[in-house]
């Protein structure tokens, strides 16, 4: 049976897809966004919080254990909700996840993935038949923040091809707006072009928040503090994306 490094399982999530969801956060990511709100998920192998208690950042969970946790919330999911897999990059687990996803689908549970799509298309194809929707986290279009050791791997990813493959199931495209980082004129124009090639896709902008800093501190790693997009720039951006929504923390 497969097992996974899970950093947390959050219940009653109302912002992770349609309906009420339980979200599983896996360890490991292809990117290295410095504003990440889950810095403990960056590296695939287990690590510990920087305290005297040897507190691990993740728990090794079997497929059965994860299934039991997810199925107990079935009453909350009702017709619209379900399970969301996130992280980190949940599609890095694709080769192990299929049996769990198949089991959840047999029990009528809807499945969503929160992903940057910076994975090979093959990974997506391994799980796509079980997935009902995707939330795509769009970073900085031309310069995704890379995990140094993975630079060739990430460069080999055809992000647009992945997007096109999945576009019918994309719940929304999401971008975190960060002052002078992701909200630059260049980046927004590129994001706009991307959104225009898929005009049916809902766009969501998220206000930057610094909640990841506390976790980074607990991990003993440096994480820079950014700022949310300024009000006037925000208004400009929202003016360019007529149907976009803006979510604040």
């Amino acid at each position: 049976m497969n097992s996974f490094n899970v950093t947390s399982v959050q219940r009653l999530c109302v912002n992770d897809g349609p309906g009420v969801r339980t979200t599983v956060f896996f360890k490991g990511c292809t990117l290295h966004c410095p504003w990440c709100c889950n810095p403990e998920t960056r590296y695939s192998s287990p690590s510990y919080y920087d305290n005297n208690r040897n507190e691990p950042v993740c728990v090794r969970m079997s497929e059965d254990e994860i299934f039991d946790l997810l199925i107990r919330d079935k009453d909350y999911y009702a017709d619209t909700g379900g399970v969301t897999f996130s992280g980190g990059e949940p599609l890095l687990q694709a080769f192990k996840l299929a049996p769990l996803l198949e089991r959840l689908k047999r029990h009528g549970v809807s499945i969503c993935f929160e992903t940057s799509l910076y994975v090979p298309l093959e990974f997506i194809k391994m799980v796509d038949s079980f997935v009902d929707c995707y939330i795509v986290d769009v970073k900085v279009i031309d310069r995704p923040f890379l995990f140094k050791e993975n630079i060739d791997f990430v460069n080999s990813i055809d992000f647009e091809a992945n997007l096109t493959y999945l576009c019918k199931k994309i719940y929304f495209l999401r971008m975190v707006l960060i002052d002078t980082v992701t909200d630059t004129k260049e980046n927004i124009e590129k994001f706009k072009k991307l959104a225009e090639t898929h005009p049916d896709l809902q766009v969501e902008f998220l206000q930057y928040h610094s909640l990841g800093l506390t976790k980074a501190k607990r991990l003993g790693v440096e994480q820079p503090l950014f700022s949310p997009t300024k009000e006037d720039r925000l208004a400009e951006i929202l003016g360019q994306f007529k149907n976009a929504r803006y979510e604040k923390v």
Partner: peptide
């Protein structure tokens, strides 16, 4: 306030809580 902003989802949670 953020949590209860999603009214329909919040109602689903409350309904389920009482059903449980």
């Amino acid at each position: 306030k953020q949590f209860v902003k999603n009214v329909d989802k919040f109602i689903q949670i409350l309904k389920t809580a009482f059903r449980k």
